[in-house]
């Protein structure tokens, strides 16, 4: 059977889909597409149409982000987990800093400048909205929380400030930007919702653990180097490495979190110059913890890859 021009054009459109998806589905999709397109003029001169084009491009985006349930490890699952971990860790950071600030105020101690309590409130509200099933609201709140950092970064670059200042804004804002971007990209309409029970409990645990760091915060003004998210990440990573089964989105998501937090941590230690010995110790500890988590994840992944057979691309998972 020789292919019509319409079939050729449709197959060309399907190239927007990932290769592994086309290998699995192309013939099936072409057969369905041509079922109702049997007019000879249409077959010679027709094209798939705007509706089909948009539907195919939407499917291409979802399969690239989400895996469409066909692959064993879907990038979308990693993206969603990074968004959730970012919301929990960064909101815990601000809660801890806010409580410490309140205690300082109550004791009449000097307050730590440059706090951003509105960021913590926005992230907490975004997390609550996401767990309540309001994805659009969550995405708007997360993007709004990331805007001030983006504004300072852009204005710093436009005004020709020292390159160091511009890079600093980028590194400081990176965790927020990545969290907001992952939330927007990962939690699309057809994405599975996060477990409300699991993430509510996890958030409560991380926030309470953050409160345990308030004394450290009071003694060292450690909020200058933001240790809470790293400590939370360290605890979650150790728990994952000790208890989890191989596979899943956790190793990749934790690795992304390490890569997002590490540049700013290294910058503080190497470039910023921290005069206070206590803060410097916290800053160095933060880098050591991140490197340790990164190495442990890498070693574990390499070991499991040697022991686990590769999944067959295109085979259904469930």
């Amino acid at each position: 059977m020789s292919a019509s021009n319409l079939e050729t054009r449709y197959r060309r459109l399907l190239r927007a889909l990932p290769r592994w998806y086309r290998e699995e589905r192309e013939e099936e999709m072409v057969a369905l597409f041509l079922e109702e397109r049997d007019d000879s003029t249409d077959l010679e001169h027709g094209w798939p149409g705007w509706g089909e084009t948009w539907a195919t491009l939407g499917l291409a985006v979802r399969t690239r982000l989400d895996g469409g349930g066909v692959r064993v490890l879907a990038p979308g699952a990693v993206v969603r987990l990074v968004a959730l971990l970012g919301l929990v860790g960064l909101s815990a950071e601000e809660v801890t800093a806010g409580v410490a600030q309140a205690v300082r105020w109550a004791l009449g101690w000097p307050l730590v400048p440059d706090r951003q309590p509105h960021v913590g409130l926005l992230l907490a509200a975004a997390l609550a909205a996401l767990l309540a099933g309001r994805r659009g609201t969550a995405a708007v709140l997360a993007v709004v929380s990331a805007l001030p950092g983006a504004w300072w970064f852009v204005s710093s670059a436009v005004q020709g400030d020292a390159a160091r200042s511009t890079v600093t804004w980028a590194l400081v804002s990176l965790p927020l930007w990545v969290t907001a971007a992952c939330l927007v990209a990962g939690f699309h309409r057809d994405a599975p919702p996060p477990s409300r029970r699991t993430w509510t409990r996890g958030t409560a645990a991380v926030w309470l653990a953050g409160l345990a760091l308030v004394p450290l915060e009071l003694v060292t003004a450690a909020s200058a180097v933001r240790p809470v998210a790293v400590v939370a990440l360290l605890v979650v990573a150790v728990a994952h490495l000790v208890t989890s089964r191989p596979g899943g989105a956790w190793p990749s998501a934790l690795t992304v979190c390490v890569l997002v937090l590490l540049p700013e941590s290294v910058r503080v230690v190497l470039v910023a110059g921290v005069p206070d010995a206590g803060v410097r110790a916290v800053a160095v500890g933060r880098v050591v913890a991140l490197v340790a988590v990164g190495v442990a994840l890498g070693v574990t992944r390499a070991r499991r890859r040697r022991l686990t057979p590769s999944p067959v691309p295109g085979s259904p998972t469930r």
């Binding site: 089909e52 948009w54 539907a55 349930g69 066909v70 057809d190």
Partner: peptide, 13 residues
């Protein structure tokens, strides 16, 4: 077609 396979993928997943 693209919409149907998006739905089927999610149902199977």
């Amino acid at each position: 077609v693209g919409t149907l396979y998006g739905v089927l993928d999610r149902l199977v997943a």
